[in-house]
Design a binder for these strands. Structure first.
Lengths: 148, 148
DNA sequence: ATAATAAAAGACATCAATGTCTTTTATTAT
DNA sequence: ATAATAAAAGACATTGATGTCTTTTATTAT
């Protein structure tokens, strides 16, 4: 797997909020973590980061919780990746050669680079909304955790 | 990065042995780890595993060390991957959805699957020898570690 | 103002990948 | 046979990702 567990939690958290947020209600971390079987406090920190990065909104206190707006739906998976992972990791030499770039490529560089660019392009052009309105309608039960 | 540090060490270890083994001499772990700046005992364990999996030969005692034959040169990167990593990880759902396969795909499944297959094909069809006899001649100094 | 509620924050725990150190085993040269 | 050498093996350490628990802060309803 290329993407971290943290990233997976972030995406599923966002999707959960988006899916249940038909009415303008806020969703609490307790509910999200239970429904998705994601560790509550760990998820809490991930959502905090998403709030800091403007992907979610949160309100403390009674009737508080997390919510998201239209702008979040148009964010890309790469935007999420930037808050959960280290973006440089997407572009480092797979063989970890000392020097590996276009001028001094490792023997795998060109081939890997092409695949890498496809993957980054996928993350970059796929939005949260794309995940929701994909070919098959996304259901709540689909976004439960796999435990891996 | 998709590939583990362990995998990178394994590849560079194999390449080092292949490159200096013009004459039939055996190469010692001490020399390999120093020249590649790879932790000695950690590399030792990795090479041990490669020996167990038939990718290298080792001899204990004076004048002992590691060596490899023609058969190793024709092994694929996927063969190396199998000794250093968990092969299932190459095919697990990137979003870690509960259920994600051809019948019940996560919203990213098809696109990811395609890229995944390209990557596995690359590992599968690239041999050790391909790395050595690539477009640019592989030099010893190229395979030092990057420290990442 | 006070109490209740929910996120934020911080300290600590666990686990897998990575790394180090010491002891054991096999081989070779004398 | 003995000593020297080098890999193998095993125990332990470190680190980053992941996970848990407790305390703090902000908000709301009363």
């Amino acid at each position: 797997m290329i993407l971290s567990k943290t990233f997976g939690y972030a995406i599923r958290g966002i999707l959960y909020i988006a899916l249940v947020q038909k009415e303008e209600r806020k969703v609490q971390i307790e509910e999200i973590s239970e429904k998705l079987s994601v560790p509550r406090h760990f998820l809490g920190k991930i959502l905090q980061e998403l709030v800091r990065n403007g992907l979610l909104t949160s309100v403390k206190g009674p009737n508080g919780g997390f919510s998201l707006g239209e702008n979040t739906l148009s964010k890309s998976l790469l935007d999420v990746y930037r808050t959960t992972d280290h973006i440089e990791q997407l572009t480092q030499c797979e063989l970890r050669f000392n020097q590996c770039d276009k001028i001094h490529p490792c023997p795998l560089h060109d081939k890997v680079q092409q695949i890498r660019e496809e993957f980054i392009a996928l993350l970059s052009k796929t939005t949260i909304n794309d995940l929701i309105t994909g070919t098959k309608k996304l259901q709540l039960h689909n976004i439960a955790t796999t435990g891996v």
